[in-house]
Design a protein around this nucleic acid. Structure first.
Lengths: 242, 242
DNA sequence: CTTGTCTAACTTGTATACAAGTATTGTGGC
DNA sequence: GCCACAATACTTGTATACAAGTTAGACAAG
């Protein structure tokens, strides 16, 4: 048994979460971090004993992960899918798609309130940087984009976000934990990009928005490399734990 | 008890479906058809007795419907959400978004195989019209769009489709059953639009594609009216049944 | 008539039991 | 050694049981 694996998902994000959500969150981040290799098979019973819960919440978790395309439910066992570079590129295709759509709506609206909210989130991010809290930073980063998307009040666009969010959250979390350790000065650039984004919204400047989005994606492109290296580290960590 | 409600969802589409999927499909179409009013509350036990299954599959179904934004899970009972005109417009926003994205990919690829598949589906649709089979027609109509979307091999775009599909399927099904009864000559136009779409793909003609998409949406705009009328009819039908 | 409290009947989330089906493994026959 | 086949140990899907919490309503006190 590998129940010696420490939990990767922040406990404080699971305040009112059910057992199923907890299992899903933890499994998700382990899969994305490469701790659970793609191709391996997860069975309900196995997961149930691993997380000391019954099959009911595990079933719930596996259904969730399947809907996020992280596993594929088969006749016998759920097979873990690969999060290849193509996959990650696809995720950013979708982000680009919906954030562009959102921006087109935003330019027709009053964005004063939104800009205010985003500024607040930005300040939170800066504090998180100051105290080197990768989890807080990730939380605010995800919130930043969620706030923008929510602001246009489009339930189906928001549904797409809701589906994407868990994976994105884990990706960001892993990448940020990495950078706080190794590439601390990345954050100045990240902050600048976000401020550029706010400025684009304030001025309703499409070109600026596209520019900041692409910078954001370039940033993330780097984070894919972080991810692969983190997979090395995490799996090494596990081996040495055993 | 209103267990006298006849099943609206085609039995033959539920070949290998689990009890949960059956319940979900039937609940979904009833909600969309207006048979279950928005605002009403569904409890797991109530649904379990209604469909003569246990709570496990019902839970599964409710989770599904919640992820499709048809119900909202609350502390006590799931509340049925309204499928307003705004909602339906949103669904077509998303369709437009992803199908446009897909087309941009298609113009860079060899579409010969796709055109062949689509032509086959078209012929099926014509047969369905000839035999006035609304269910078959709807099936092929949904398949038509799914085939296009699948062809670009983009798992995240396809995920968005998978989320949208059940609602769309029910919408189309209801609308087509309506039209076969009342507006039979609508179908000539629908067929023409689809052929226009295929032609746009064959020629990789963006303008033609946008034109056919918009015609398709105009068609659907009409089907929204069908939907409201169907809600009248279905609910009348229920009243007279009691 | 209003208000507060207690009880009873709901609700969900989780655990467990059971049935049906599917891989796997081991054994007997060759 | 190898193949056929049966027994076994898995798997999922569904039903049921139980615990904890919430709502609603009855009923008594003011």
């Amino acid at each position: 048994m590998t129940d010696s694996i420490p939990y990767l998902y922040p406990e404080k994000w699971l305040n009112k979460a059910s057992a199923g959500e907890r299992v899903a969150s933890e499994l998700r981040i382990r899969i994305i971090a490469g701790l659970i290799e793609s191709g391996s098979k997860l069975s309900e019973n196995q997961m149930a004993t691993e997380f000391s819960v019954s099959r009911s919440p595990v079933r719930e978790a596996l259904k969730l992960l399947a809907s996020e395309n992280l596993i594929r439910l088969e006749r016998m066992g759920a097979v873990v899918l690969e999060l290849s570079e193509k996959e990650i590129q696809e995720i950013y295709d979708v982000r680009l798609l919906i954030e562009t759509f959102v921006f087109e709506r935003l330019v027709k609206k009053d964005t004063a309130q939104l800009v205010k909210e985003l500024s607040k989130t930005m300040e939170m991010m800066k504090i998180a940087i100051k105290y080197k809290d990768a989890d807080d930073f990730s939380y605010e980063d995800v919130l930043f984009h969620e706030t923008i998307i929510r602001s246009i009040d489009h339930s189906h666009i928001f549904m797409i976000w809701k589906n994407l969010k868990p994976t994105l959250e884990s990706l960001i979390l892993i990448s940020m934990r990495m950078r706080f350790k190794e590439k601390y000065d990345d954050f100045e650039r990240i902050i600048n990009n976000h401020e550029l984004y706010i400025e684009a919204i304030r001025q309703k400047d499409r070109d600026l928005m596209v520019e900041s989005l692409h910078k954001n994606f370039d940033d993330v492109q780097g984070s894919v490399e972080d991810l692969w290296r983190s997979q090395q580290i995490y799996s090494k960590g596990v081996e040495s734990d055993d």
